[in-house]
């Protein structure tokens, strides 16, 4: 882990209609961490990620990625949206979806060529989906769709990866495969931020954690702050997990 900060969030407030979804969030994501964002439903986890990506406009606050606004750092950040956010009956193939990861670096109008196809095939292989490259995406299982989304982000070859519930609705094999890729990313110095729901696996998978429930409850190394106190503050109930360290 280096001393640089990958993402800095300052006084971020976001609201849909009247109710604030995120309230006055300050957050620093150091470079090279594998961070989980945990919190109850409606805590604003997805909103936080979407705000960092500029998909949602905040009411107040500023966000920088490696000390510059996100608008100037598109090529440094890769995004894995929630699987359910798209229509999987869209007429296209697995390879085609993964190729979309190269569109950002291509910029406007330019079409993907051999180089982009090669990169996409490599990413498909990494997630164990090469055999499915010509498969119509509606005929993929939930876990396979998640792997395709992951491959699409890998193709971007970014420094920061923001993932919205990549473990949602996937079987144990896929979960292992995904976490191995995430750990590999961290090993190569990338920063990975994951919206995560399964509290039991936090200490095993992640080295950094942020507790969020509209307000930021705590952020820091898992071994220092992943305790019953913060869990109770976040989830509002007396939460006990067996933390093995």
């Amino acid at each position: 882990m280096s001393n640089r900060t990958a993402i800095t969030v300052d006084d971020l407030t976001v609201a849909y209609n009247y109710k604030p979804v995120l309230w006055d969030i300050d957050l620093v994501v150091p470079e090279g961490v594998l961070m989980a964002i945990v919190g109850p439903n409606g805590a604003g986890k997805s909103t936080l990620i979407k705000s960092i990506l500029g998909i949602i406009k905040p009411i107040a606050g500023s966000i920088t990625v490696f000390d510059k606004p996100y608008k100037k750092q598109y090529d440094l950040v890769a995004y894995v949206p929630q699987k359910g956010s798209v229509d999987w009956d869209f007429p296209t193939t697995a390879l085609d979806v993964v190729m979309m990861g190269t569109y950002g670096s291509l910029g406007w109008i330019k079409r993907p060529g051999k180089k982009q196809k090669k990169a996409a095939l490599e990413a498909l292989e990494k997630v164990g989906m090469l055999a499915f490259k010509s498969r119509q995406i509606s005929q993929l299982s939930g876990g396979q769709q998640q792997r395709i989304f992951l491959a699409r982000a890998l193709v971007q070859n970014a420094s920061i990866y923001l993932m919205d519930e990549p473990f949602q609705g996937v079987d144990a094999t896929t979960e292992k495969a995904i976490i191995n890729i995430l750990k590999e990313l961290r090993k190569s110095g990338k920063t990975v931020v994951v919206v995560h729901h399964d509290l039991q696996t936090v200490p095993e998978y992640f080295d950094w954690v942020t507790f969020l429930n509209v307000k930021k409850i705590a952020t820091g190394p898992v071994k220092d702050i992943f305790n019953d106190d913060n869990l109770t503050k976040t989830y509002g109930i007396n939460y006990k997990v067996s933390v093995q360290q």
Binding site: I55, K71, Y74, Y79, G104, P112
Partner: peptide, 22 residues
Amino acid sequence: ALFWKEFKLLLFDADYTKSLGF
């Protein structure tokens, strides 16, 4: 023809399109 790639991306996944800077 000109914006084929961009249209396809937008039709499939608008949020992702935004995140790529389009």
